[in-house]
Simulated assay, not measured.
Amino acid sequence: MKTSLKTGLAGVSMLALLGGGTAVLLAGPAQAAAPTSSAYGLSATGAAPVGAAPSATSNSAERTATGAAASSDGTLRASATVRASAGKASVQVTGLSGLGGLLSGTATATCDGGKVSSSFSGTPAGPLGAKGTVTYGVTGSTADGAKFVIAAQVTVKAGSGTAASVINIGYAACGPDGGNPNPTPSNSPTGKPTTSPTASPTSSPTGKPTSSPTSSPTGKPTTSPTTTPPTGTPVPPAPPVPPVAPPVQPQDDHLPVTG
């Protein structure tokens, strides 16, 4: 069982390496959602608040809104046209008036792929009355990472230096992805490697040896024995010659003379 598991894992690794078949790759962390684009014409806090209006938000198709905004006591008002789509937002403000005639003008603000710009024509930047301050082109980032710009911001302080109200005129925010709310990661696997092996391994056998072994026998000896068995009837060896008897010594027939 362990051998089969190891073999299977090895096969998946090889398929992923060579681009053959389908290999399952572990996914990394999920991509964060693209920042939402938004825009509005006028907002205010304090004794005479104004909710952000008119407004539009989107992270896909463009949304547009046109209308007027005003405080409940009528001391602050403006009209605006806003647009928002994936990676883009814009606003045009006209007819601004407020603070007893101290505040007036027109404004524009745009955001494109996280790059912001704005303009304001009317009440100059700097001190406004006894307790107010006008600031042009206020920029920053939202909680989801969008870049924003406010064409003009008016801060009115209370007695002890704390802000009594803040007025934002012409707000636009968008993500820094250049209009693509779901960018595709550049290091994401496409299913196959970008390059495939161009050749088979040079060390793989071709199926048959290119030459026969020189030391293997061919099946028969290349030369015959130099001696051959006799072709005729074998002749028996001659019988041994009997030994020759020793010669007989001649004897003297004369008897010895005795006296």
Rank of each mutant, 00 (worst) to 15 (best):
163 A>W: 00
236 P>W: 02
54 P>L: 08
152 A>P: 05
211 S>V: 13
38 S>W: 12
236 P>K: 13
64 T>F: 09
168 N>G: 04
243 P>Y: 08
7 T>R: 09
77 R>L: 01
112 D>P: 06
113 G>Q: 02
55 S>E: 13
245 A>T: 09
248 V>H: 10
78 A>K: 00
162 T>A: 07
228 T>W: 11
100 G>E: 10
145 G>Q: 03
139 T>H: 08
155 T>C: 06
204 S>P: 03
212 S>Y: 07
201 P>R: 14
40 Y>N: 04
203 S>W: 15
5 L>D: 15
161 G>P: 07
182 N>W: 12
236 P>Q: 02
230 P>A: 08
105 G>Q: 08
221 P>C: 05
144 D>A: 03
235 V>N: 06
160 S>I: 08
97 S>H: 14
3 T>R: 13
177 D>L: 06
227 T>D: 10
24 V>D: 13
99 L>S: 07
77 R>C: 01
239 P>R: 06
64 T>D: 15
164 A>Q: 14
241 V>M: 04
7 T>A: 12
150 I>W: 01
183 P>W: 09
155 T>P: 01
158 A>L: 02
63 R>G: 00
161 G>H: 13
18 L>W: 01
231 T>P: 00
251 Q>M: 05
45 T>I: 13
133 T>H: 00
175 G>K: 04
179 G>W: 00
50 V>S: 03
140 G>V: 07
156 V>K: 00
190 T>C: 14
28 G>L: 08
86 A>Y: 02
58 S>K: 10
20 G>V: 15
146 A>T: 02
119 S>T: 15
